[in-house]
């Protein structure tokens, strides 16, 4: 696989008032995100994970170091619109990112900005709404939708730009469990279709469903590996104020209690299978 996003030694600090010392939000981060991969980024509040997300589509630009998206440098003004087209972003608050009072007009907002011809916008809107199963609500106002439905519309709005990568900046944080489940299923579906997914989250259960987990702390990457590898380092995660997913935590305690459980238990289904095999 080839790298879709290459981050080299990236540092960034938010601008501060005169007299205050800037505190780096990102401090020498290097990361490669492969094309078509599904990566989760976890970390406690203030670890820099949201700042990292905004660096991926040039909403923020590096102070030092370099971010290459599909070979395009985010520091280059001439490239930022092409970068934003290729890397779509879904934000945390479902209410504050929908532009239009009608669902289908909102989905059309991205392609309209790109200057796509009218007939093709129609085609893309239909396709994007179908991908998130929101065709039935196309004429509704966003205030009539549930949180999960609003986030699905936001995802459709990104898909209508035909991006190669989709970044979710804590997009499930304000949703109920049902809404979170809906969004996760759509992400897994998009991943299977070859779209690169970067999921910023503080829900460990969600991170466990990714192919790779990057753990951030104080603006640095401090762990990077498959969910099994990362969650095997339970003590270190706890030291970073991160909880293990329920199934992994329980499996670990059962092992301590003397129960012989196989390695590699990540989800509740895995645990169930290990405790009472169906066959």
């Amino acid at each position: 696989m080839s790298a879709f996003i290459e981050i080299e030694n990236l540092s960034y600090a938010y601008p501060v008032n005169e007299g205050e010392t800037p505190r780096p939000a990102l401090d020498g981060v290097s990361l490669r995100i492969e094309a078509g991969s599904f990566t989760a980024v976890i970390g406690r509040n203030g670890s820099g994970k949201s700042t990292l997300a905004k660096q991926l589509n040039a909403l923020l630009r590096p102070d030092a170091g370099r971010v290459l998206v599909d070979g395009l440098d985010t520091a280059d003004d001439a490239q930022i619109w092409e970068i934003r087209r290729r890397v779509g972003m879904v934000f945390q608050n479902p209410d504050n990112q929908l532009v239009s009072s009608i669902v289908e007009d909102d989905v059309a907002f991205g392609p309209e900005n790109l200057g796509v011809p009218t007939e093709e916008i129609r085609e893309r809107v239909d396709e994007a709404l179908a991908a998130v199963s929101m065709e039935a609500q196309r004429q509704k106002g966003p205030h009539l939708l549930s949180g999960g439905q609003k986030q699905r519309v936001a995802i459709a709005g990104v898909l209508a730009m035909r991006p190669r990568c989709i970044v979710l900046d804590e997009a499930t944080a304000m949703l109920d469990p049902k809404g979170r489940q809906e969004v996760m299923e759509i992400l897994e579906h998009l991943h299977r279709q070859g779209i690169t997914v970067v999921l910023i989250t503080h829900f460990m259960e969600e991170a466990a469903r990714a192919e790779r987990i990057v753990v951030m702390s104080r603006g640095k990457v401090c762990m990077d590996g498959s969910p099994a590898e990362v969650f095997a380092r339970g003590e270190e995660l706890r030291a970073l104020d991160l909880e293990l997913p329920f199934a992994i935590d329980l499996a670990e305690r059962l092992r301590e209690g003397g129960l012989a459980l196989p390695q590699g238990i990540l989800t509740e289904d895995d645990l169930l299978e290990a405790l009472c095999p169906s066959k």
């Binding site: 909403l59 619109w81 087209r85 779509g88 991205g110 309209e112 200057g115 796509v116 990104v158 730009m161």
Partner: peptide, 13 residues
């Protein structure tokens, strides 16, 4: 993030 940069060059649904 959705490439909005004013009315210039926009098309409509």
């Amino acid at each position: 993030a959705r490439c909005y940069r004013g009315g210039e060059g926009r098309t409509r649904l």
